[in-house]
Amino acid sequence: MVPQMIIEARDVGVELGGGPVLRGVDLRAGRGDIVAVVGENGAGKSTLLRCLAGLQPGVSGKVGVFDRPPVDEPAFWRDVALVGDEPAWYPGLTVREHLELMPAVHAAARMEVGTALETFGLAGRGDMAPLSLSTGQRQRLSLAMALIRPSRLLLLDEPERGLDPAFRSRLAACLTEYAAEGGTVVMATHDLRLVEVTRARSVTLEAA
């Protein structure tokens, strides 16, 4: 049976270099939820996302994703897609081939590759190497790769980074559609307009 509660984090704390980065954070998210983690620089938004992705060592409190602690293992990543810093692209592959990689490896896709190229404004860039794209276009490609593959949880660290205002609206529509299909989105963001348009539930972090 698919659990309704996707993320359940209680009293999460992280210390780095002897100082607290996160302290006593609670976060719950169910199927179809969009949660926006907001807060000033250094509040621990990215650290919280790393905790939810099982990538942060030394976490206190309880973090549960799909009713179990998150771990950096293939079974976990088959359900979870993470978009953080720009990934290192495979040399010699085009934009389209990077996108095609996802349906090929997962044997399923949420949308056609051509549709994804159109949706993410990369239609005329399919035959280019990712390194030839602008920063914003590479961010679009990262988001497209995460959204073209099937997943149940989407973790986004500042997805609006480098994107123009017009595309941010399109991204909001993509995330809303993903949640409507039953997916859960947790994003760390500074874009309050994106929070508003996606009707995300805000969780505000204060610097610990």
Binding site: D72, E73, P74, W77, R78, A81, L82, G84, D85, P87, A88, W89, Y90, L101, M102, V105, H106, M145, A146, R149
Partner: peptide, 11 residues
């Protein structure tokens, strides 16, 4: 950089 490997979900 294991970002793409994580997106692929392969061990």
């Amino acid at each position: 950089d294991p970002s793409l490997a994580r997106l692929s979900g392969v061990g």
